[in-house]
Structure formats: C-alpha cells, structure tokens
C-alpha cells in the first residue's frame, strides 16, 4: 500500500509542468524515504532528477518499494482538474496496475477521484557521479529564465562563462551576437534577489538553448536557481522545492569542434 498526501496540489502541478516538456513518461520510484524520479529526455542529452522527501508530505506511507510508470501528459491532465489549494492524495496498491489521485476541496465537501493506468516502463538508470564543481552560481530563477529566453532568440546555443568578475551568458547567430553579464551582488539583504558565485576555477561551457529553456519551466517552484559547472562535465541546474525536496536538471555540454 502506498499513500502520499499533500495539502497543496499546486506543488505537484508545478513539478509536472517543469518536467513534462522534457519527458513523455517517467517512473516514480516510491520508497520509505520518499518519491524519486530519474529520466533522460528522448535525445539523451539531458537528465531530470526529482526528489520528494517523505517528511515533506502531510501523510506518507509506503509499505513496499514501488515503481510507478506514468504518462506525464495524462498525469498533467488529471492535475489540471484540481484547484491549487486542493489537498491531493496519491494512492496505489502494492500489486496494482493503476494509481489513484484524490482531490479534496478545502472550502466545500467535494472529493474527486481519478484513477490512472500505470505503464511498465523500461528506463535506463544513470549513476550520477559525485562531482566537485569549479563554479557554483546562485541567482534569481526568474532572472535566469529571462536571460535564457532572451538569448535563445539569437542563437541555438549559449556560452556560459564564469569568472571572478561574474557570469557571462553569450550567444551568436544570423542576426548578430548577444551578451548578458551579471556580477556578484554585494548586499545580502534579500537572499532571493542576490547573485552569489562560488568559484574555484574559471569555466566556460556551451549548452543548447532548447534544453535550458525547458529547464526554466521549473521557475515557478522557487525564487532561486543554482547552476553548477565544471570543465567537461554536465551542467547542473537545481531548483529547491521548499520543504519537499529538489528538482535537478543535468545537461551535457556541446564540445569544441577542434577536438575531433
């Protein structure tokens, strides 16, 4: 028997919106410690890793480890049927091939049940190596989304270079080139608005705009985003889900042509 209850279905809605761009379906691994999801996008360029801790739920029960393969578009459809302040309960029997989403409205006596068929997905699981990153940048998530959106108009890929002075996002295309530089902020009054750079070594890497744009769909989850970079290692874009866990995106860099 698996049961997880969350007073705000809005969080789940936001998580779904953040991953359904990249993934069509995904396996939710449920265990005593919480719900985990790890999946690559179709082109195997990026990886989505979601962790929802059991402590963050209002009620959590998982008698036996359970993997639920779900179609994210269908799941998103179901969650669209709920209001943001509805309480959601996810239920599944140990041996069932369906999952039930129950929404309870706060103000009125209204309970909606949605049962969804599970899928038997055979997805590859990747071992994410522990990496000491050369650069860790914390910045407002809205700012990051804005930069990526703006620059993707000019070119297919964005070069992110991190130095002591700050972070530079640049691109070039048919129209011309574009550069956005942001420096580390000195006042720490508002943590949500500050830019902090923890740098061991300067790093410059190139990434495809398309994926970065998909990552920024997670912006509504949290006001701060963390970018971790090292030379010749995938970029990590991390969004903390308050009290519940985190959503991490890994993106393989584009390599210099000279190497081949």
């Amino acid at each position: 028997m698996f049961e997880a209850r969350l007073t705000q279905s809005a969080i789940f809605k936001k998580v779904l919106d953040a991953i359904k761009d990249l993934l069509n379906e995904a396996s939710f691994d449920c265990s005593e410690s919480g719900i985990q999801l790890q999946a690559m996008d179709n082109s195997h360029v990026s990886l989505v890793s979601l962790t929802l801790k059991s402590d963050g739920f209002d009620k959590y029960r998982c008698d036996r480890n359970l993997t639920m393969g779900m179609n994210l578009a269908s799941m998103s459809k179901i969650f669209k049927c709920s209001s943001n302040d509805d309480t959601v309960t996810i239920k599944a029997q140990d041996d069932a091939d369906t999952v039930t989403f129950m929404f309870e409205a706060k103000k009125q006596d209204k309970i909606s049940d949605y049962e969804m068929k599970l899928m038997n997905l055979d997805q590859e699981h990747l071992g994410i190596p522990e990496t000491e990153f050369s650069c860790v940048i914390k910045m407002p998530s809205g700012e990051f989304a804005r930069i990526v959106k703006d620059l993707s108009q000019f070119g297919e890929s964005i070069v992110i270079s991190c130095t002591k002075e700050g972070v530079k996002f640049s691109t070039s295309g048919d129209i011309g080139s574009a550069n956005v530089k942001i420096a580390q902020t000195s006042n720490f009054d508002k943590e949500e608005e500050c830019v902090s750079i923890d740098m061991q070594e300067p790093v410059t890497l190139t990434f495809a705009c398309q994926y970065l744009n998909s990552f920024t769909k997670a912006t509504p989850l949290t006001p701060v985003v963390q970018l971790s970079m090292s030379d010749n290692v995938p970029l990590v874009v991390e969004y903390q889900i308050p009290d519940l866990g985190h959503l991490r995106y890994y993106l393989a860099p584009k390599i210099e042509e000279d190497e081949n």
């Binding site: 691994d29 890929s157 890994y250 584009k254």
Partner: peptide
C-alpha cells in the same frame, strides 16, 4: 558545436530499487 550526450558522462546502471 556537436552536442554531447548525458550518457557520455554518466554510467548506465540497473534500476536497483525497482
């Protein structure tokens, strides 16, 4: 520039929990 794959950096493992 040519795009690298995420599998170039991370080894494919079996799903142990599932």
């Amino acid at each position: 520039k040519p795009q690298r794959l995420i599998t170039d950096f991370m080894p494919v493992k079996k799903r142990s929990s599932s």
